[in-house]
C-alpha cells in the first residue's frame, strides 16, 4: 500500500512539472472558454445544441490527452532508465502500475477541474451559465472519459517500447475510438444480416469507452429519445436507479481489465528481461 502511495506521489510531482500537462490544460481551458463565448449569454440546460457541442469537444480532446499523458509517462520510465533503477528496489509491478494510474488520474482530473471551474465561473459572469445538474453531468462525463482512457493508456505504455511507438499507438486508438468509429461500424455491420446489427452494436459499444460514456451522458441529460425506438430499453434502464451503479461497475471492470493485462505484459517483460 505504501509503495503505491510513493509511486503516486512521485507521479503527481512529475506530472505537475511536465510541460505537457500545462499545454493540455491551456488547450482544454481555452476550448471550454471559447465555446462559452460563441454561445455567450445562452444558458446550458439538458441535451441541447451547446451541451451536445461540449460533449463532442470533450470527446475529441480528453481521450487524446489521457492516452498521451499515460503512455508517455510509462515509456519515459523505460527510455530514461528509471525503470531499471526502480527494478533494483523492492517494488512490485502492481504497485508501480496502480500508483502510476492513481497519480496520473489526479493530474488529469486537476486539468479537467480547472477547465470546468473556469467555464462555470466565466459562464455565470457572462450572464449565461449552466444548469446545476447539467454542469455536474458534463463534469462526470469528462471525469469518466479521462479515467477510461487513462486505463487504456497504461496498456499502450506497457506495449510500446519508446515514446514514438506510444504516440503512434495512442493516436491510432484515439482515431479508431472517436473519429472512425461510426464509419467502421456502418461499413462492417452493413454487410451483416439486419437482425445481427443491433446485438453487434451493443457488444461493440461496451468495448468502446468513448461511445459508452457518451451514450450514458446523453440519456442522463434527457436526450435518450434521440436514439430511436430500437434503444427504448437502454433509455429506461439508464434512467432507473440501477443505471448509475451499473455504469460505474462497468467502468471499473473495464479499467481493471486494462490494468490487469498491462500487469501481465509488464510482468512477462520483467521475467523474460
Amino acid at each position: 500500500m505504501n509503495e503505491i502511495g510513493y509511486v503516486a506521489a512521485r507521479e503527481i510531482k512529475i506530472g505537475f512539472r511536465n510541460p505537457w500537462a500545462y499545454s493540455f490544460m491551456a488547450l482544454f481551458a481555452l476550448f471550454m472558454l471559447s465555446l462559452l463565448l460563441i454561445n455567450a449569454q445562452s444558458y446550458v440546460k439538458g441535451y441541447s445544441g451547446i451541451s451536445g457541442t461540449m460533449l463532442n469537444l470533450a470527446l475529441y480532446l480528453l481521450p487524446l490527452m489521457a492516452l498521451m499523458l499515460g503512455a508517455f509517462s510509462l515509456t519515459g520510465e523505460k527510455e530514461e532508465g528509471n525503470w531499471e533503477l526502480l527494478s533494483t528496489y523492492p517494488l512490485g509491478t502492481w504497485a508501480f502500475l496502480s500508483g502510476k494510474y492513481i497519480g496520473l488520474s489526479v493530474v488529469l482530473l486537476v486539468i479537467v477541474a480547472l477547465g470546468f471551474g473556469l467555464s462555470g465561473v466565466a459562464g455565470w459572469l457572462l450572464g449565461g451559465g449552466f444548469d446545476f445538474s447539467t454542469y455536474g453531468q458534463l463534469l462526470v462525463f469528462c471525469i469518466c472519459l479521462s479515467l477510461f482512457f487513462l486505463g487504456a493508456s497504461m496498456l499502450v505504455g506497457t506495449i510500446a517500447k519508446n515514446r514514438w511507438q506510444a504516440l503512434t499507438l495512442a493516436v491510432g486508438i484515439w482515431f479508431f475510438a472517436v473519429i472512425a468509429w461510426p464509419s467502421l461500424l456502418i461499413a462492417a455491420l452493413g454487410m451483416l444480416p439486419y437482425s445481427v446489427i443491433k446485438p453487434a452494436i451493443t457488444v461493440l459499444t461496451f468495448l468502446n469507452p468513448a461511445e459508452l460514456t457518451r451514450l450514458f451522458t446523453v440519456v442522463k441529460l434527457g436526450g435518450g429519445s434521440t436514439l430511436g425506438p430500437e434503444y427504448y430499453n437502454w433509455m429506461r434502464w439508464i434512467g432507473s436507479p440501477w443505471g448509475t451503479p451499473v455504469f460505474a461497475g462497468a467502468m471499473m471492470a473495464w479499467i481493471g481489465v486494462a490494468l490487469l493485462i498491462a500487469y501481465a505484459v509488464w510482468e512477462r517483460g520483467r521475467r523474460v528481461g
Binding site: S42, Y43, K45, S48, A113, L114, F116, G117, L118, S119, G120, V121, G123, W124, G129, F130, D131, F132, S133, T134, Y135, G136, L139
Partner: peptide
C-alpha cells in the same frame, strides 16, 4: 431557455473546482 436557480450553485461548484 428559462433559467433555474441552480446556475449560481454551478458557479459555486466551478469556483470550488477552480
Amino acid at each position: 431557455a428559462e433559467r433555474s436557480e441552480g446556475d449560481a450553485a454551478s458557479a459555486l461548484l466551478g469556483l470550488a473546482l477552480l
